[in-house]
Simulated scan of single mutants.
Amino acid sequence: MPIGSSIKINDISIYYEEYKHPNALNTIVLIHGFLSSSFSFRRLIPYLEKDVNIVSIDFPPFGKSGKSLKFSYTYANIASTILELLDTLGYKNIIATGHSMGGQIVLNMSIQRPEFIKKAILISCSGYVPRAKLPLRMLTYVPFIGRFIKLYLEKSGVEGNLNIVVYDKSIIDEKMIKGYEEPFHHNEIFRALAKMLRHREGDLAPVSLQSIQTPCLLLWGDHDTIVPLNIGNRLAYDLPNSSLVVIKNTGHLLPEEKPKEVYDEIIRFI
């Protein structure tokens, strides 16, 4: 059973879950994607916890972590906050695993502390997305912008979004819908999302990616319509010490759709 805790780092509450293995030498850190939380790894963790220590983190403003309007929601700051959390918890030999936007955070962690991140696993990792244009960033200063963001996200609803991000629609059930829906019952997240849109720098440029020497495993679904496979191919080209594995008949939510296959590739890699 996980031990869920919250701790204040960089003036914001960070929620994390620990799955401790008595004999494991390595620790896998799980970092979810945009509009998600540690819930997205619920089907992968039961496989991994047999072999390694696990720390699954809700990065702000998502999940059960803080949504402070004073926090700077840049990739660089989120990455440094997670690194400080791991230092505080005393972990070493880190294998950092990021899904989607979480992959960009992992890459930033690898740049900031290359000696600390032993290996990186990038699952359907976002890439090459530029910073939001100035007019869009200026809109985030509009009063009640949080309400507009909430209305925009509610258009398709959680179930509609899940139908877009998974290949096998049969895995979508009430538990899955409720799990991805729960964080959005709290209105403070929408104002924080406006700040994230304002703060978020662009994804790492090729010159930065090419400087990363950390061994990287890239895992991709062949039917990913959110971050298409061509992004995985570009990342595999730009990351000098990387390999790309494509999993068949799978969409964007690899840890939900093919947890056993993802586990097998991770264990082979580490």
Score class of each variant (00 low, 15 high):
M138R: 10
D224R: 12
K150C: 00
F190A: 09
L162R: 13
S126K: 08
I267F: 00
R147D: 13
I121G: 06
V55C: 03
Q112S: 04
Y75K: 06
E257G: 08
N163Q: 14
L217K: 03
S65V: 09
L244Y: 05
S72G: 03
E257N: 11
S124T: 13
C125H: 10
N23K: 14
N108Q: 11
F116S: 00
R137V: 07
P114E: 14
P2Y: 01
S65H: 09
L25S: 13
G202T: 12
R42M: 05
P183A: 04
T27A: 07
G232Y: 06
F34P: 09
A192P: 03
N77V: 11
F59E: 11
R137F: 10
S211H: 07
S208V: 10
L48R: 00
G232I: 09
L235G: 08
P61Q: 14
L153C: 08
N161T: 02
P2A: 01
K119P: 00
I31Y: 05
I7T: 14
L35I: 02
Y180E: 12
I231V: 15
L48M: 00
P215E: 13
I267L: 07
L218A: 08
N161W: 12
N230V: 08
K92L: 06
L44M: 01
S37C: 01
L217F: 03
P22I: 08
E188Q: 13
V142N: 07
S37H: 09
K169F: 05
E181H: 11
P183V: 00
S72E: 14
I266N: 03
P2D: 01
I105G: 09
T27V: 06
D264S: 10
V227Y: 07
M176Y: 08
L86T: 10
S36T: 08
L136P: 06
N161F: 06
L30Y: 03
R200Y: 10
Y141L: 09
L219N: 02
D168Q: 13
K260V: 08
H186N: 15
L239I: 11
S211D: 12
V207N: 14
M176F: 05
P114G: 02
E188M: 01
R42N: 13
S170P: 11
F41G: 03
G98P: 05
M109N: 07
P206E: 07
H252Y: 05
G98D: 08
G221E: 06
S36H: 08
I164F: 09
R147C: 02
L162V: 01
R268F: 00
I54L: 02
K155S: 11
S156Q: 14
G202E: 06
M196C: 04
K178G: 06
K195M: 07
L86N: 02
R268Q: 06
R137K: 15
N10T: 11
R137C: 12
N108H: 15
S243F: 02
K119N: 13
D238R: 03
E201A: 00
P61F: 10
I82R: 01
K64W: 01
L151S: 15
G160M: 11
I45L: 01
A132T: 03
L253S: 15
V165K: 11
V142G: 02
P240T: 13
M196E: 15
T225G: 05
Y263Q: 06
E265Q: 14
V262E: 00
R137Y: 10
A96N: 04
Y73D: 12
H99N: 14
K8D: 06
L136Y: 10
I12D: 10
L25M: 07
S38V: 13
F62W: 14
L25F: 04
R268A: 09
L254W: 01
I94A: 00
